[in-house]
Amino acid sequence: MKKNTVIFYGLILAFIIVAPFIFPDFRTQLAALWLMIIVAMTWDMTGGQMGYNSLGNIVFYGTGMYVAAVVTIALAYDVGAYTNAFGGGVYKFTDQQYFLGMLLGILGAGVFCSIIAVVIGFVTFGLRGPYFAIGTLGVAIAAGELVSNWEWVGGGQGIALPVYPGDLDTGKVLFYFLFAVTGVVLFIFLKWLYSTRFGAAINAIRDDEEKAEAMGIHTLRYKLTTWAMSAFFVGVVGGISAFQLIHFEPLETAYQTINLGIFMVVCVLLGGKGTLWGPIIGAILFHVFKEVTWNYFLGWQWVALGALIVVTVVYFQDGVMGYLAHRKPEWFGVRLDDKKAEVSQ
């Protein structure tokens, strides 16, 4: 690595570590920003790099939440009885039960969501283009509806997890770092993944799937693997969110199809599809816009958000990175004439 690169990443990492301590009032906000960054990066794995625009990735977030909750509860109590006694029962968790549940719940959420992605993917990856988007949207809506009718996990009322046993501020720092570590791991993982043959293969699927098939690339296998990896990380952050939010219910929080489910797409579009940094930039822009303007809309927030989606899609579809790539192609290693080609390598 070049010296500048080391300094660049070192500075970012240092900021990530000190941020919750220099902005103590914004710890929850920063955690929410990490959530946005992570889901945007995972959406870009299929949407940007592989060309499969899913509108249903939220299904992994919701499922991750439920898996984490159910695992934690099941380690100590009977889940059906626990959810039945919602609000009334006295269920105590020891510190050990809480943290063991957290560890197993979050990892279990990731693994379970990967499996779900492979199972759903066997069907949905037969669909191309808009059919895939509509099909996955359908899966997400159906999942939310089914879970909200499933009494064992609390039905429409949702499910409540134990509160973090320590003091409140330590809890906020813990959740910040859970998200941050997941985000950093995801970034390193993707940087590596996109540099392998695997990355090239999913790009080939995006650019011309028929040609990729004709060249004998195992398209379905790559598509399933990519979605499973993406789902793993979404499931993990879903699990973390479950512990952070303590109580969540199926339609508004877990399977929030038109909130987070569509935000992740907008983030990626804002930042630029199919790039490593695009989703991150987009998520930061979007999150800041959302948080700063939110209070000024006086009940019109959701209309404004719908309008933001429309405006982004219509006028700014290539995003920040796309704009830069258009203006400064040489930054992205695109060579347009023969001379430069001779100079390098």
């Binding site: 625009n53 509108l55 808009p130 988007a133 509509i134 038109i258 569509i262 797409v265 579009l269 959701w302 958000l305 719908g306 309008a307 933001l308 989606i309 429309v310 899609v313 219509v314």
Partner: peptide
């Protein structure tokens, strides 16, 4: 598709 989804919201 996404533009009309935004419109729908």
């Amino acid at each position: 598709l996404l533009a009309t989804f935004g419109l729908a919201i």
